[in-house]
Design a protein around this nucleic acid. Structure first.
Lengths: 244, 244
DNA sequence: CAGTGGTCTAGACCACTTT
DNA sequence: AAGTGGTCTAGACCACTGA
């Protein structure tokens, strides 16, 4: 499954080493040593390390070395949203071997309102699917997800397809990948529906993630609104300023 | 002010060309031509193009070329990556002309516990400032922020300094910039203190953002835990897959 | 001054798309 | 087959850190 690219293999190896606590000093070997040890060029080492740094797994100090971000190890044990090989829920949430489930709550075709039309760059006469699903881990509901997808992009969508991973369907059957997203993350008090579906107490909140997913050619593919049981929302974000 | 790095200059040049619509075919010259035209190596061209792609300005199709994302030109505000000069609260939150305020709740020096010591890469005998502040917009409290900063990085911190923007102080007085952060975003029911300070009802939640800020040389500078009035937490995130 | 990460180059070869 | 982006290498030189 994993790509056979050298830098990705090295990235995976190093990340696994870090998770397995094989660097007790919290410092990685220097780039030239890694290059020697894994028999790859230093450029390739840098590429793997840059990905780790982008993801917040390590941070680099010029003149000193490359260090493991302790927060990454700490959050590793928790269930969290991360940037994986796919942007969809099925791949983006840490599952720890738990089995993901989907319960279809609603599936219909509607005319989008102006806001949705704008967000998905639709023409006035375009229609969209409205797909409301309950997401589970091992029978435990953790998220209510409402998605809107333009009919013209996947006219053949069915209840069956929508009962599984739509992103995987796209990738497997239509060879299209979702590679970009713009999401807004916020929090809200839970509604009665949230409380019922997600087994929440009235004072317990939901995390809300809403935004647009894009295909790799830039087409806005889906507007999605996700309401998460608050204990399941752990979004890790690593921000770097400066263009590099 | 602009860095004199080759890849950054090329990035800026290309982006300006795109905005000035100098590529009416919506396609950039191929990498080898750009390399020739600007007298830089192809690797440097790729680096500049990768930044443009990360920011959603262009997308690349293997075998075809590099194309300008029409959505970038059409709706610049959606895609535009705001390179604020700073990562701090004062600069990162949308203020709409509202005046930010800071009320110092607590300021002392403590011995960090093991977890904090690990997160900030401290030695066993390092001490940290503990700074608890209430943040306001136009007298309206919206966030309780507790920060921990190693004494050794800014030994001269005072109540006066921490009553203002610490990040700005760093930049103006010590010429150091916070350029990287690693934050975990989550939501929680509000505590009694949250309800009091942020004027929340018992059923209303807080958004929690916690993590580490780094200086541009990679030094972990501050561990911060921010509890936000839920209506003020709106975190925008743009994710692009393809680790390059 | 030795060690370490950052930038940049020049070129080989591969994978995919278009003609 | 030609064109284009992707991967990977080997090495030079620079900038910063720390003993």
């Amino acid at each position: 499954m994993m790509a056979d690219l050298v830098y990705q293999q090295l990235f995976t190896t190093l990340r696994d080493n870090i998770i397995a606590k094989k660097y007790p000093t919290m410092k990685l070997p220097d780039e030239r040593s890694l290059s020697e040890q894994y028999q790859v060029s230093r450029s390739t080492v840098k590429r793997a390390l840059n990905i780790l740094a982008d993801q917040g797994v390590v941070f680099k100090k010029r003149g000193s070395g490359t260090f493991i971000n302790p927060l990454y190890l700490k959050n590793q044990s928790v269930f969290h949203y991360h940037n994986g090989s796919n942007l969809g829920v099925t791949d983006s949430f840490q599952m720890d071997g738990r089995k993901p489930g989907i319960k279809l709550l609603d599936f219909e075709v509607i005319r989008p309102d102006d806001e949705l039309r704008r967000d998905l760059f639709l023409n006035p006469d375009d229609f969209v699917y409205q797909i409301k699903r309950l997401r589970l881990f091992d029978k435990q509901p953790f998220m209510i997800e409402t998605g809107y997808i333009p009919i013209k992009i996947v006219p053949e969508l069915s209840r069956e397809i929508v009962s599984g991973s739509i992103f995987n369907y796209l990738q497997d059957e239509k060879n299209q990948t979702v590679t970009k997203s713009f999401l807004t993350i916020s929090a809200e008090p839970s509604t009665v529906e949230d409380q019922t579906e997600l087994h929440l107490q009235p004072n317990e909140p939901v995390g809300v993630m809403a935004g647009v997913f894009f295909l790799d050619d830039g087409t806005p593919f889906e507007y999605s609104r996700m309401r998460l049981h608050y204990q399941y929302m752990k979004y890790n974000t690593s921000v770097t300023l400066g263009e590099n």
